[in-house]
């Protein structure tokens, strides 16, 4: 538990740093930072249950995509300003680097092993975000209809 809390705090600090580097609006900073921490929590929990790199990254990225959409609606801002930051703790930066280091130093085994890690993590994140976009695409019309109905209902209520 203590290990997780240390990692969670480190992710919050890291995501906050990247949020500032990426020029996130000051108003969006707390939500973007917290979303990074929560996305990592989902990754951590799924990884505990099924230690599969693809699955844990897929689940975390799917959560990040849905939560980023909710924040985008709330703040009326592009969802990518939240989702790109949320997946920062998941990106296979280390694997991508070791992979190319293997190429340059001639270490074929390092290259092979890290390519698989980078591809599995990258595909997991991408699939999670794409799948969340598909789900959002399916529920968006219903949300829109509900919002219109609510607005119409309250307008009629005001008339009465």
């Amino acid at each position: 538990m203590i290990d997780f809390l240390i990692l969670f705090s480190a992710v919050l600090v890291g995501t906050f740093g990247f949020a500032v580097i990426f020029g996130t609006k000051p108003k969006h900073l707390p939500a973007a930072t917290l979303l990074g921490g929560l996305t990592y929590t989902v990754f951590y929990l799924v990884d505990l249950a099924t230690p599969d790199l693809f699955l844990s990254n897929f689940a975390a990225a799917f959560f990040a995509g849905i939560a980023a959409f909710a924040l985008a609606v709330f703040y009326r801002a592009p969802a990518v300003t939240f989702s790109a930051l949320a997946v920062i703790p998941l990106v296979p930066g280390g694997a991508l680097y070791y992979m190319m280091y293997g190429v340059i130093s001639g270490d074929t085994e390092l290259f092979r092993a890290q390519s698989v890690v980078a591809l599995r993590v990258g595909l997991g994140i991408a699939a999670g975000i794409v799948f969340s976009s598909t789900v959002i695409g399916l529920i968006r019309p219903h949300l829109h209809r509900a919002a219109v109905k609510k607005a119409t209902g309250s307008a009629e209520g005001n008339k009465k």
Partner: peptide, 25 residues
């Protein structure tokens, strides 16, 4: 012209980003 943060804050943020995420490795 929109640059929400001054250089000193970008520098601190770089330190936070690298320092924070290095724990994950």
């Amino acid at each position: 012209g929109i640059t929400p943060y001054p250089l000193w804050m970008i520098l601190i943020a770089s330190a936070c980003g690298a320092g924070g995420l290095s724990f994950l490795f």
